[in-house]
Amino acid sequence: MIVDAFYAAPAVLILALAVYTTVVRGTFAASVGFLAYGLLLTITWVQLHAVDVALTEAAIGAGLTSLLLVRASHRLRESEAAIRAETPGLPLKLAAGLVAGIVGGGIALAVLTLPEPAPTLAPQVAANLAATGVGNPITAVLMAFRAMDTMLEAIVVLLALVGVWSLAPDRAWGGRQGPRYNADPDGILAFIARVLPPIGIVVGIYIFWIGADHPGGKFQGATVVAAMWLLAMLAGLTDAPPIRRRWVRALLVAGPLAFVAVGIVGVYAAGTFLGYPPDAAKALILVIEFALMPSLAFTLGLVMAGAPERPEEAA
Protein backbone atom coordinates (compact mmCIF):
# COMPACT_ATOMS: atom_id res chain seq x y z
CA MET A 1 0.00 0.00 0.00
CA ILE A 2 2.68 2.47 1.05
CA VAL A 3 4.85 1.23 -1.80
CA ASP A 4 2.00 1.82 -4.27
CA ALA A 5 1.63 5.38 -3.02
CA PHE A 6 5.40 5.82 -3.38
CA TYR A 7 5.10 5.07 -7.10
CA ALA A 8 1.68 6.62 -7.69
CA ALA A 9 2.37 10.00 -6.06
CA PRO A 10 4.96 11.20 -8.62
CA ALA A 11 2.82 9.85 -11.49
CA VAL A 12 -0.25 11.80 -10.30
CA LEU A 13 1.85 14.93 -9.75
CA ILE A 14 3.39 14.59 -13.23
CA LEU A 15 -0.06 14.43 -14.83
CA ALA A 16 -1.26 17.40 -12.75
CA LEU A 17 1.82 19.42 -13.71
CA ALA A 18 1.40 18.50 -17.38
CA VAL A 19 -2.15 19.89 -17.26
CA TYR A 20 -0.97 22.98 -15.35
CA THR A 21 1.84 23.65 -17.84
CA THR A 22 -0.62 23.41 -20.72
CA VAL A 23 -3.43 25.55 -19.37
CA VAL A 24 -1.62 28.16 -17.24
CA ARG A 25 -1.61 31.69 -18.61
CA GLY A 26 1.80 33.24 -18.89
CA THR A 27 4.85 31.66 -20.48
CA PHE A 28 7.04 32.06 -17.37
CA ALA A 29 4.67 30.07 -15.17
CA ALA A 30 4.44 27.40 -17.87
CA SER A 31 8.25 27.20 -18.06
CA VAL A 32 8.54 26.76 -14.29
CA GLY A 33 5.82 24.11 -14.45
CA PHE A 34 7.79 22.32 -17.15
CA LEU A 35 10.91 22.43 -14.94
CA ALA A 36 9.09 20.83 -12.00
CA TYR A 37 7.56 18.30 -14.41
CA GLY A 38 11.05 17.32 -15.60
CA LEU A 39 12.34 16.89 -12.06
CA LEU A 40 9.41 14.66 -11.12
CA LEU A 41 9.96 12.66 -14.31
CA THR A 42 13.56 12.21 -13.15
CA ILE A 43 12.33 10.72 -9.88
CA THR A 44 10.07 8.33 -11.77
CA TRP A 45 12.97 7.15 -13.97
CA VAL A 46 15.01 6.49 -10.81
CA GLN A 47 12.08 4.50 -9.40
CA LEU A 48 12.10 2.43 -12.59
CA HIS A 49 15.86 1.83 -12.08
CA ALA A 50 16.62 3.69 -15.33
CA VAL A 51 19.33 5.86 -13.81
CA ASP A 52 20.90 6.72 -17.18
CA VAL A 53 17.60 8.07 -18.45
CA ALA A 54 17.06 9.89 -15.15
CA LEU A 55 20.43 11.65 -15.46
CA THR A 56 19.65 12.69 -19.02
CA GLU A 57 16.17 13.90 -18.10
CA ALA A 58 17.55 15.94 -15.19
CA ALA A 59 20.37 17.46 -17.26
CA ILE A 60 18.82 17.95 -20.71
CA GLY A 61 15.05 17.72 -20.14
CA ALA A 62 14.59 19.57 -16.87
CA GLY A 63 17.77 21.64 -16.82
CA LEU A 64 18.77 22.75 -20.29
CA THR A 65 15.34 22.79 -21.94
CA SER A 66 13.70 24.65 -19.02
CA LEU A 67 16.47 27.23 -19.08
CA LEU A 68 15.88 27.77 -22.81
CA LEU A 69 12.14 28.14 -22.14
CA VAL A 70 12.67 30.60 -19.28
CA ARG A 71 14.96 32.69 -21.49
CA ALA A 72 12.45 32.57 -24.32
CA SER A 73 9.64 33.67 -22.00
CA HIS A 74 11.86 36.54 -20.78
CA ARG A 75 12.34 37.69 -24.36
CA LEU A 76 8.61 37.42 -25.02
CA ARG A 77 7.63 39.43 -21.92
CA GLU A 78 7.18 42.70 -23.81
CA SER A 79 4.77 41.20 -26.29
CA GLU A 80 3.03 38.68 -24.07
CA ALA A 81 -0.09 40.73 -23.44
CA ALA A 82 -0.51 41.31 -27.18
CA ILE A 83 -0.06 37.59 -27.87
CA ARG A 84 -2.60 36.70 -25.21
CA ALA A 85 -5.11 39.13 -26.71
CA GLU A 86 -4.98 37.17 -29.96
CA THR A 87 -6.44 33.95 -28.60
CA PRO A 88 -7.32 31.51 -31.36
CA GLY A 89 -10.98 30.86 -32.05
CA LEU A 90 -12.88 27.84 -30.82
CA PRO A 91 -12.57 25.78 -34.07
CA LEU A 92 -8.77 26.15 -34.01
CA LYS A 93 -8.63 25.18 -30.33
CA LEU A 94 -10.82 22.14 -30.99
CA ALA A 95 -8.69 21.11 -33.97
CA ALA A 96 -5.49 21.45 -31.92
CA GLY A 97 -7.03 19.45 -29.08
CA LEU A 98 -8.19 16.78 -31.51
CA VAL A 99 -4.73 16.38 -33.06
CA ALA A 100 -3.06 16.28 -29.64
CA GLY A 101 -5.66 13.79 -28.42
CA ILE A 102 -5.14 11.48 -31.40
CA VAL A 103 -1.34 11.54 -31.00
CA GLY A 104 -1.54 11.03 -27.21
CA GLY A 105 -4.21 8.35 -27.54
CA GLY A 106 -2.22 6.55 -30.22
CA ILE A 107 0.88 6.46 -28.05
CA ALA A 108 -1.13 5.28 -25.04
CA LEU A 109 -2.76 2.57 -27.17
CA ALA A 110 0.61 1.38 -28.47
CA VAL A 111 2.02 1.14 -24.93
CA LEU A 112 -1.07 -0.52 -23.44
CA THR A 113 -1.35 -3.16 -26.18
CA LEU A 114 2.31 -4.24 -26.03
CA PRO A 115 2.55 -8.04 -25.95
CA GLU A 116 3.42 -9.52 -22.58
CA PRO A 117 6.37 -9.75 -22.04
CA ALA A 118 7.25 -6.66 -24.08
CA PRO A 119 9.65 -7.33 -26.98
CA THR A 120 13.21 -6.66 -25.85
CA LEU A 121 16.73 -6.84 -27.19
CA ALA A 122 18.21 -6.78 -23.68
CA PRO A 123 19.36 -10.47 -23.75
CA GLN A 124 21.27 -9.88 -27.00
CA VAL A 125 22.90 -6.78 -25.50
CA ALA A 126 23.90 -8.72 -22.37
CA ALA A 127 25.28 -11.58 -24.50
CA ASN A 128 27.41 -9.25 -26.66
CA LEU A 129 28.38 -6.75 -23.97
CA ALA A 130 31.88 -8.23 -23.56
CA ALA A 131 32.68 -7.57 -27.25
CA THR A 132 32.39 -3.80 -26.74
CA GLY A 133 34.78 -3.60 -23.79
CA VAL A 134 32.46 -1.32 -21.77
CA GLY A 135 30.63 -2.45 -18.64
CA ASN A 136 27.49 -0.29 -18.77
CA PRO A 137 24.98 -1.88 -21.19
CA ILE A 138 23.41 1.55 -21.88
CA THR A 139 26.76 2.90 -23.01
CA ALA A 140 27.29 -0.24 -25.11
CA VAL A 141 23.96 0.38 -26.88
CA LEU A 142 24.63 4.09 -27.38
CA MET A 143 28.24 3.77 -28.50
CA ALA A 144 28.33 0.38 -30.27
CA PHE A 145 25.03 -1.30 -31.14
CA ARG A 146 23.19 1.93 -32.00
CA ALA A 147 26.17 4.24 -32.48
CA MET A 148 24.52 5.71 -35.59
CA ASP A 149 21.72 7.20 -33.46
CA THR A 150 24.21 8.76 -31.06
CA MET A 151 26.19 10.24 -33.95
CA LEU A 152 23.06 11.82 -35.37
CA GLU A 153 22.16 13.14 -31.90
CA ALA A 154 25.52 14.88 -31.66
CA ILE A 155 24.88 16.42 -35.08
CA VAL A 156 21.35 17.47 -34.06
CA VAL A 157 22.79 19.41 -31.12
CA LEU A 158 25.07 21.18 -33.58
CA LEU A 159 22.08 21.94 -35.81
CA ALA A 160 20.27 23.38 -32.77
CA LEU A 161 23.17 25.81 -32.32
CA VAL A 162 22.96 26.74 -36.00
CA GLY A 163 19.29 27.48 -35.35
CA VAL A 164 20.19 29.72 -32.39
CA TRP A 165 22.82 31.52 -34.48
CA SER A 166 20.38 32.06 -37.31
CA LEU A 167 18.31 34.27 -34.97
CA ALA A 168 21.09 36.86 -35.08
CA PRO A 169 20.26 40.26 -36.56
CA ASP A 170 22.59 41.17 -39.43
CA ARG A 171 24.63 43.67 -37.42
CA ALA A 172 25.40 41.04 -34.75
CA TRP A 173 26.30 38.24 -37.18
CA GLY A 174 29.72 36.90 -36.28
CA GLY A 175 29.54 38.67 -32.92
CA ARG A 176 28.95 37.46 -29.39
CA GLN A 177 25.90 35.59 -28.11
CA GLY A 178 23.60 36.87 -25.40
CA PRO A 179 23.84 40.16 -23.52
CA ARG A 180 27.02 41.18 -21.70
CA TYR A 181 26.15 40.48 -18.08
CA ASN A 182 27.30 43.04 -15.55
CA ALA A 183 26.77 41.39 -12.19
CA ASP A 184 28.21 43.00 -9.06
CA PRO A 185 31.83 41.71 -9.03
CA ASP A 186 31.69 41.45 -5.23
CA GLY A 187 28.13 40.08 -5.21
CA ILE A 188 26.75 36.69 -4.41
CA LEU A 189 26.46 35.62 -8.07
CA ALA A 190 30.14 36.30 -8.70
CA PHE A 191 30.93 34.41 -5.50
CA ILE A 192 29.04 31.27 -6.50
CA ALA A 193 30.38 31.53 -10.06
CA ARG A 194 33.88 31.32 -8.57
CA VAL A 195 33.19 28.61 -5.97
CA LEU A 196 30.97 26.22 -7.92
CA PRO A 197 32.73 25.67 -11.30
CA PRO A 198 35.77 23.81 -9.90
CA ILE A 199 33.36 21.39 -8.17
CA GLY A 200 30.97 21.26 -11.13
CA ILE A 201 33.71 20.57 -13.67
CA VAL A 202 35.00 17.67 -11.57
CA VAL A 203 31.44 16.32 -11.24
CA GLY A 204 30.84 16.70 -14.99
CA ILE A 205 34.04 14.87 -15.91
CA TYR A 206 33.26 12.21 -13.28
CA ILE A 207 29.80 11.61 -14.80
CA PHE A 208 31.45 11.40 -18.23
CA TRP A 209 34.19 9.01 -17.10
CA ILE A 210 32.01 6.73 -14.97
CA GLY A 211 29.66 6.25 -17.96
CA ALA A 212 31.81 3.37 -19.28
CA ASP A 213 30.79 1.07 -16.44
CA HIS A 214 28.03 2.85 -14.49
CA PRO A 215 25.14 5.24 -15.20
CA GLY A 216 26.51 8.44 -16.70
CA GLY A 217 27.93 9.59 -19.99
CA LYS A 218 29.12 12.43 -22.13
CA PHE A 219 25.77 14.17 -22.72
CA GLN A 220 25.00 14.47 -18.99
CA GLY A 221 28.58 15.34 -18.07
CA ALA A 222 28.83 17.90 -20.87
CA THR A 223 25.61 19.57 -19.69
CA VAL A 224 27.05 20.01 -16.19
CA VAL A 225 30.28 21.50 -17.58
CA ALA A 226 28.28 23.76 -19.92
CA ALA A 227 26.15 24.94 -16.98
CA MET A 228 29.30 25.94 -15.09
CA TRP A 229 30.49 27.94 -18.10
CA LEU A 230 27.10 29.61 -18.36
CA LEU A 231 27.20 30.46 -14.64
CA ALA A 232 30.54 32.24 -15.17
CA MET A 233 29.01 34.09 -18.15
CA LEU A 234 25.94 35.15 -16.13
CA ALA A 235 28.19 36.49 -13.38
CA GLY A 236 30.11 38.54 -15.93
CA LEU A 237 33.36 36.70 -15.19
CA THR A 238 33.73 35.58 -18.77
CA ASP A 239 32.07 36.27 -22.11
CA ALA A 240 30.76 34.17 -24.98
CA PRO A 241 33.31 34.04 -27.81
CA PRO A 242 32.56 35.80 -31.11
CA ILE A 243 31.03 33.15 -33.32
CA ARG A 244 33.03 34.16 -36.39
CA ARG A 245 36.26 32.86 -34.79
CA ARG A 246 37.85 29.92 -36.58
CA TRP A 247 38.66 28.08 -33.32
CA VAL A 248 35.05 28.33 -32.14
CA ARG A 249 33.80 26.56 -35.22
CA ALA A 250 36.66 24.03 -35.16
CA LEU A 251 35.87 23.07 -31.57
CA LEU A 252 32.15 22.78 -32.37
CA VAL A 253 32.63 20.32 -35.24
CA ALA A 254 35.65 18.42 -33.83
CA GLY A 255 33.54 15.91 -31.87
CA PRO A 256 30.99 15.03 -34.57
CA LEU A 257 33.80 14.91 -37.17
CA ALA A 258 35.78 12.46 -35.03
CA PHE A 259 32.63 10.34 -34.75
CA VAL A 260 32.18 10.30 -38.54
CA ALA A 261 35.90 9.58 -39.01
CA VAL A 262 35.74 6.55 -36.70
CA GLY A 263 32.67 5.46 -38.67
CA ILE A 264 34.60 5.62 -41.94
CA VAL A 265 37.51 3.74 -40.38
CA GLY A 266 34.93 1.05 -39.57
CA VAL A 267 34.11 0.66 -43.28
CA TYR A 268 37.68 -0.47 -43.95
CA ALA A 269 38.50 -2.21 -40.66
CA ALA A 270 35.23 -4.00 -39.94
CA GLY A 271 33.36 -3.91 -43.22
CA THR A 272 30.56 -1.55 -42.19
CA PHE A 273 30.07 2.12 -41.28
CA LEU A 274 30.68 2.56 -37.53
CA GLY A 275 31.76 -1.08 -37.24
CA TYR A 276 34.49 -1.68 -34.68
CA PRO A 277 37.14 -4.41 -35.05
CA PRO A 278 36.58 -6.58 -31.95
CA ASP A 279 39.96 -5.96 -30.32
CA ALA A 280 39.84 -2.20 -30.87
CA ALA A 281 36.20 -1.55 -29.86
CA LYS A 282 36.92 -0.02 -26.45
CA ALA A 283 39.75 2.14 -27.84
CA LEU A 284 37.60 3.50 -30.69
CA ILE A 285 34.69 4.19 -28.30
CA LEU A 286 37.08 6.11 -26.05
CA VAL A 287 38.35 8.14 -29.04
CA ILE A 288 34.78 9.16 -29.87
CA GLU A 289 33.88 9.93 -26.25
CA PHE A 290 36.96 12.05 -25.62
CA ALA A 291 36.52 13.97 -28.87
CA LEU A 292 32.79 14.46 -28.33
CA MET A 293 32.78 15.60 -24.69
CA PRO A 294 34.50 19.02 -25.16
CA SER A 295 32.55 19.71 -28.37
CA LEU A 296 29.26 18.85 -26.67
CA ALA A 297 29.99 20.98 -23.59
CA PHE A 298 30.94 23.89 -25.83
CA THR A 299 27.90 23.45 -28.10
CA LEU A 300 25.41 23.12 -25.21
CA GLY A 301 26.93 26.16 -23.47
CA LEU A 302 26.52 28.24 -26.63
CA VAL A 303 22.98 26.94 -27.22
CA MET A 304 22.06 28.23 -23.74
CA ALA A 305 23.90 31.54 -24.22
CA GLY A 306 21.17 32.82 -26.54
CA ALA A 307 21.12 34.38 -29.98
CA PRO A 308 24.07 36.52 -31.11
CA GLU A 309 23.11 40.11 -30.32
CA ARG A 310 26.34 42.12 -30.03
CA PRO A 311 28.91 42.93 -32.71
CA GLU A 312 32.33 41.76 -31.61
CA GLU A 313 33.83 45.27 -31.17
CA ALA A 314 31.34 46.17 -28.46
CA ALA A 315 32.65 43.49 -26.12
Partner: peptide, 16 residues
Protein backbone atom coordinates in the same frame (compact mmCIF):
# COMPACT_ATOMS: atom_id res chain seq x y z
CA UNK B 1 26.89 20.92 1.49
CA UNK B 2 26.28 21.65 -2.22
CA UNK B 3 22.53 22.08 -1.69
CA UNK B 4 23.23 24.44 1.24
CA UNK B 5 25.62 26.45 -0.93
CA UNK B 6 23.18 26.70 -3.82
CA UNK B 7 20.03 27.34 -1.76
CA UNK B 8 21.75 30.05 0.30
CA UNK B 9 22.94 31.75 -2.90
CA UNK B 10 19.63 31.35 -4.71
CA UNK B 11 17.87 32.75 -1.61
CA UNK B 12 20.16 35.80 -1.63
CA UNK B 13 19.61 36.39 -5.35
CA UNK B 14 15.82 36.11 -5.11
CA UNK B 15 15.77 38.36 -2.03
CA UNK B 16 17.83 41.01 -3.85
Amino acid sequence: LLVMLSSADAGQLIAR
